[in-house]
Amino acid sequence: MKGSFIVNGLPREWEFPEDMRLLDLLRREGYTEVKCGCREGMCGSCCVLLEEKLVNSCQVLAASAMNREIRTVMGLSEGEEPHPLETAFAEAGAVQCGFCTPGMILAAYCLLKENPDPSEEEIRRGLDGNYCRCTGYVKIIEAVQRGARKMREKEVQE
């Protein structure tokens, strides 16, 4: 089948099998920042934003995402400037192997949109669908707190 998508703000038109998952379609088309982990909706490494909602792209049939806006982690930054959350993850040392990072950043982004100043417990809950097998989450939580501060400061400056 053939379908239109809007990925990171750009219109795309692709042919794909009717039962293809969004994860596989995005990766086939070069969006390799969307990582393939468990394929069961457990690990969160394949997370993307579908109409600005965090979803596991392995649990979304591509056909059901047609004519909708999809955002990968690459779509968060503005031009060459990394998103404050991306900077915060690097500064906090919250990235080891990096496999979970795109999903973590998108989950954190969704959380901070709803709640700009979350408690540690709220961060843990907001990231409940994203597994990291390297860091033990301490640095990730620190990165989200740091990113939250940066986003609040940026908003004040704007």
């Binding site: 909706g41 579908l50 909602k53 979803v55 409940d128 669908g129």
Partner: peptide
């Protein structure tokens, strides 16, 4: 229930 991304689906 489940997780944040799954609750959205």
């Amino acid at each position: 229930a489940a997780s944040t991304p799954l609750r959205n689906r």
